[in-house]
Simulated assay, not measured.
Amino acid sequence: MQRLLTSARQFLPAAQRAGGLADLQRVGGYTAARLFSTDADSHDDFKPQVKAAPAGDVEATIEKDIASHDVFIYMKGVPQAPMCGFSNMACAILNLYGVEYGSRNVLADPEVREGIKRYTAWPTIPQVFIKGEFVGGSDILHEMHQKGELKKALEGCKPADD
């Protein structure tokens, strides 16, 4: 341990001369990477992105989403490329019935991801709405499908434009 501290101390003056550890490029044969992505010369893609929307805006977005389609799913990914098995299963079931449905990728907007959980008091994603009513997640959708209840719930919903 003592040896490690001695080694670290020998680099400290060089780091201070270089303007701090974030700017230290090469000291004593070791390469140090930039530690912070907020440097002025860092590309915007690597800087922290902050999207702060008031809770009312998230709820309004959710209500608009649900009203815009007979069937709507909040999922991880998009229907053409689900990012989790549960979202994939929910989309597969909906596709089986040939109904048009809207979707929102909750991975793209963390505020909607948390907002939909508060809105429904349901802790998991995906979340499916049929005719404005919250149905549940993929497990509930699967159970409804097996019991024949989903066919009845989807009656009158707009068919997909295949």
Rank of each mutant, 00 (worst) to 15 (best):
A8F: 03
M83E: 09
E59F: 14
P110R: 06
K64M: 06
D65Y: 07
Q49I: 00
F134P: 11
G148K: 07
L96S: 15
E59W: 03
L4D: 11
A32T: 15
A60F: 02
V106C: 14
S37I: 06
G98I: 10
A90P: 14
P126A: 05
E114H: 13
C157W: 02
P48C: 12
M83H: 12
R3T: 12
Y101S: 01
V27F: 02
K76H: 10
F46V: 11
C84V: 03
G156S: 08
Y30V: 15
Y119N: 08
R104T: 06
C91V: 15
C91P: 12
K158M: 05
A53V: 14
I116D: 00
H145N: 09
A60L: 05
F72G: 00
A160C: 11
V128F: 02
D162S: 15
L12F: 04
R34N: 05
G136L: 10
R113H: 11
P110E: 06
A14F: 10
L4S: 13
R34A: 05
G137M: 05
S68Q: 06
Q2D: 11
T31M: 12
R3C: 08
Y74T: 00
N88T: 04
T38E: 07
Q2Y: 05
A55V: 09
A53T: 08
T120H: 07
N105W: 04
T120R: 05
A92V: 06
Y119D: 08
A40C: 11
P48E: 09
D23C: 09
H142I: 02
A60S: 02
M83R: 15
F86R: 14
G156P: 13
A52S: 12
D109I: 01
P159M: 05
V135A: 10
F134I: 03
D65H: 10
G115K: 01
V50G: 08
F46D: 13
G148F: 02
A108G: 12
A53H: 06
F86D: 06
S7Y: 01
A108H: 00
D65M: 05
K51A: 01
V128Y: 04
V27G: 13
S68N: 09
D139N: 15
F46A: 14
G28P: 09
L35W: 08
K47Q: 10
D161A: 15
T6I: 01
G56P: 09
R3P: 04
E149V: 00
Y30D: 09
M1S: 13
R26C: 11
G132F: 05
P48L: 10
H145F: 01
L107A: 13
N105L: 07
A15E: 01
L35Y: 09
G20M: 09
